[in-house]
């Protein structure tokens, strides 16, 4: 139980971000039209948001 909790703590978010990025890359090629494009932009926007959200701390004194 403890191991499972540890695994999710370390790998939960990276795996989720990996999958959402792959989905974002696939959405725009799977279908035509703005709906598929928008899905792709939203999905690819999530990892970018995560990087900005957590990366901001780097510049904090």
């Amino acid at each position: 139980m403890l191991d499972k909790h540890k695994f999710v703590k370390v790998w939960g978010k990276p795996i989720w971000l990996f999958l959402i990025t792959i989905a974002g890359l696939l959405f725009a090629i799977m279908g035509t039209g703005i709906a598929w494009y928008a899905l792709s932009w939203i999905a690819l926007g999530i990892p970018l948001y995560a990087m900005v959200k957590h990366g901001r701390a780097f510049f904090r004194q």
Binding site: P14, F18, L19, L25, P47
Partner: peptide, 10 residues
């Protein structure tokens, strides 16, 4: 580590 793991898939 942060940037590496988040940009990994791309």
């Amino acid at each position: 580590n942060l940037l590496g793991i988040v940009t990994l898939a791309w």
